[in-house]
Simulated assay, not measured.
Amino acid sequence: MPEYPTALGASSRDSITLLGKDLATDVMGEVGFGELAFWLATQRRPTPGETRVFEAVLAALADHGFTPTAIVTRLTYLSAPDSVQGALAAGLLGGGSRFLGVTEDCGRFLHEVLVEREPPAGDDGWDELALEVVTAERAAGRFIPGLGHHVHKDGDPRTPRLFQIAREEGLVGPHLSLFAAIGRVHPRVLGKTLPLNGAGVCGAALADLGLPLELLRGFALLARTAGLIGQLAEELRHPVGNDIFLSVDLNNRSVPPSAQGGPHG
């Protein structure tokens, strides 16, 4: 018979091992869920400082109110209350380039800048690199992931707090350093000041923790799962899904087809 080696969960008749530990005696009640999620992804146990930064990221991304992911979760539950998994999945499927996906996009963007460069020395060096990056992106007509927020125009409150936690734990690495420099220099190029948003700083922090870039969106989705469970719990207590549905359904307005005949003319 073929063998399928794994360092993750494995079961025998009378025990379960996880990451080389006995699940019942060494993990349950001994390892927090955030710490375990980090450990599962990296197959190394994080330090207390890494756990603190990682869990701060999860908290930052868990819930932002009535975002599209929350609304679609509530509406899917309204339509199919027998399928909690469907409601959660519907919300998670909305994690893309505008919501949640910025975490991965920012981490990847910063990493691509840094991968072929030696980290600069001091803020002046980081500012010089950031100025080069922002200028190049502006010339190419591209937006910088993590720069700007549709609500927090004057600053995302999550951003300075996550920088503070990373500094306290000695975990400000090259990704956070470059992101901070982009925040300092971009007004010189763009002619306006935009906030560094929370999703972006989360991506920079996760990249500095050495987590796989390919999984950064997965960690955002892990965080949002907790938030969506909270949305469903509140929907059970104080339902608004039907009101959202009716506000559209009862206020639709019939119009003739477009003279252009649709998006393709």
Rank of each mutant, 00 (worst) to 15 (best):
M1Y: 10
E3D: 13
T6Q: 05
T6P: 04
R13V: 13
L18W: 00
L23H: 04
A24Y: 13
A24I: 07
E30R: 09
F33T: 14
E35C: 06
L36R: 03
A37D: 00
F38S: 00
A41H: 01
A41M: 04
Q43A: 07
Q43R: 08
L58K: 08
A60Y: 09
A60T: 13
T67I: 01
A70S: 09
L78W: 10
S79M: 13
P81V: 05
A89T: 14
G91M: 06
F99Q: 13
V102I: 15
C106M: 03
F109W: 10
P120E: 08
P120R: 07
D123Y: 00
L131I: 05
A140Q: 11
G141Q: 04
R142D: 02
I144Y: 13
L147K: 02
G148W: 11
V151Q: 03
V151A: 03
D156H: 12
R158E: 10
P160A: 11
S177C: 12
F179N: 01
G183C: 05
H186W: 05
R188E: 15
G191D: 02
T193S: 11
A205Y: 03
A205I: 04
A207D: 02
L213V: 07
L216D: 10
T225V: 04
Q231F: 09
Q231D: 14
L232P: 01
A233G: 06
H238L: 15
V240E: 15
V240L: 15
G241T: 08
N242G: 07
F245R: 14
S247I: 02
S247F: 06
V248I: 11
V248L: 09
N251L: 00
V255C: 12
V255N: 11
P257K: 01
P257Q: 01
G262N: 09
H264N: 13
G265K: 14
G265C: 12
